[in-house]
Design a protein around this nucleic acid. Structure first.
Length: 431
RNA sequence: GGAGAGGUGGCAGAGUGGUCUAUUGCGCGGGUUUGCUAAAUCCGUGAGUCUGUAAGGGCUCCGCAGGUUCAAAUCCUGUCCUCUCCGCCA
């Protein structure tokens, strides 16, 4: 959420931001209602002051008669303040709804545009796009679904039998690749000062909402557990953000760098018709995630740090990619700025296409305000909201798509990226 | 899963319906004393929010959410968490 006072004092900027993001939010309605709320609050507090004074005087009353008349006076005051409280609660609820619908402000350098066609793309990867037809012995690249079947690495049919479309079994070296990718990413993050964690795969709905995910809506991406207030996490961002929900930390402990390894579960509601063959869009996958809590002045540098780590990880894997600076209209609500890595996937589309493999967002204090995650400066009064950031280190399923398709060879085998060989235990996957 | 005990400020720990404001200690900040250190001593010291130029003042907060009452840290209900014991289990 944005700060209420900030919205009130910067209504025009907030409205412009909503327009840039192509989000419809009733900023004027919010301003009007917030002004109303303040007046109501002050009326209520005046009544409470009075009622508190009466209550106190009853304890000191000398005669029973005096007590009784004071009690009656107190009763009436409390009744009136109760009515006001009910009115205030209703206003508060509506206000909260409006406040949540207003997205975070966007970074001034984020490209302005309605959708992903305005995204800024930069080719930064160290690995060139392979030319299978002309350079690698001359053959037509196939996609990971074909490779996965031929090499007995992925069983979609069995997955569908067990859990439905969108689920799969990884088999043989694909399992080793999954483990290897986790180990490889965890090693890089540990070196970079991240604390490694394996998170709960379930979280309370309260925590989901705090991080900006909405369980149980018609459009929800979230699986909920019937009869409980728990949901399956869509990303380790959820439990990692929840770690400091409602907490106040000392500024000296910042920034806090966390790496979370979790399974991720997504209903992918409404995505069924889209071209998303094989492992590209699935209901469950494993992900190594970066998360950080920082001081406000640290968050931009941390965002660059996360992007650089993503580049390091994919350069290390020998995967060609481009970096996308996401346009305002394509940003999620909590994001101030977002960079994606899109990897080259030779089997995607007619002759290969880029496909999203990572995403890193700076949420500034937008998420922390909802989570109520704060920091305290030594020697200073009061507390402020932390900044939060998240970034994908490796989403295993998408990384597998890229690796299988990029490392395929003329004889139908797939070579193993060099950095993964120690963990996989072989150089080539063949049958 | 069953039974019991508990959750109070940065920490420890009192407080079982009103009596001045949640007692006190530690820690922290500042003053005094002192050749230095140490010690002693005094003052101050939770968060959120509203109002005010400010000084100040109001309201809310004792795990969380409700309830009873003129009045709740205190009584009642639910819930979450921690600890102890029992059962079950990889």
């Amino acid at each position: 959420m944005l700060d209420r006072k900030f919205i009130l004092e910067n209504a025009d900027a907030v409205k412009l931001n909503c327009a840039n993001r192509h989000v419809t939010a009733d900023v004027d309605g919010f301003v009007k209602l917030e002004t109303e709320r303040k007046a109501l609050q002050q009326d209520l507090e005046r009544l409470q002051t009075e009622a508190n004074a009466v209550s106190k005087s009853i304890g000191q009353a000398k005669t029973p008669e005096e007590r009784e008349s004071k009690k009656e006076e107190g009763r009436q005051l409390r009744e009136k303040s109760g009515e006001l409280r009910a009115k205030l609660d209703a206003v508060e609820e509506e206000l909260d709804r409006l406040q949540r619908s207003i997205p975070n402000m966007a970074h001034p350098d984020a490209p302005i545009g309605a959708d992903d066609t305005s995204n800024l793309r930069r080719s930064l990867g160290k690995t060139p796009i392979p030319q299978f037809l002309t350079e690698q012995g001359g053959f037509k690249a196939v996609d990971h679904v074909v490779l996965g079947e031929k090499l007995d690495l992925i069983d979609f049919e069995a997955g569908a039998r067990v859990a439905g479309a969108g689920f799969y079994f990884l088999k043989n070296e694909a399992v080793l690749l999954e483990l290897a990718l986790q180990r490889y990413a965890a090693g890089i993050l540990q070196t970079a000062g991240f604390t490694l964690t394996a998170t709960p795969d379930l979280a309370r709905n309260e925590v989901l909402q705090g991080t900006g995910y909405i369980p149980r809506g018609p459009e929800t991406q979230i699986y909920s557990i019937d009869g409980t207030d728990l949901s399956l996490v869509a990303t380790a961002e959820i439990p990692l953000g929840g770690m400091l929900a409602g907490q106040t930390v000392d500024a000296e402990t910042l920034p806090i760098r966390l790496c979370g390894i979790s399974h991720c579960f997504r209903t992918e509601a409404g995505a069924a018709g889209r071209a998303s063959r094989g492992l590209y869009r699935v209901h469950q996958f494993t992900k190594v995630e970066m998360f950080a809590f920082t001081l406000p002045e640290q968050s931009e540098a941390m965002h660059q740090e996360m992007l650089a780590l993503e580049c390091q990880i994919f350069d290390g894997l020998g995967i060609p990619y481009q970096v996308v600076d996401t346009a305002t209209g394509d940003l999620g609500g909590p994001a101030y700025r977002k960079f994606d890595l899109e990897a080259w996937m030779p089997g995607r589309g007619e002759a290969g296409e880029y496909g999203e493999v990572t995403s890193t967002s700076n949420c500034t204090d937008y998420q922390a305000r909802r989570l109520n995650a704060r920091f305290r400066m030594k020697g200073e009064k009061g507390t402020k909201f932390l900044h939060t950031l998240n970034g994908t280190a490796i989403a295993i399923s998408r990384a597998l798509v890229a690796i299988l398709e990029l490392y395929q060879q003329k004889d139908g085998s797939v070579s193993v990226p060099e950095v993964l060989r120690p963990f996989v235990g072989k150089d080539v996957i063949r049958r």
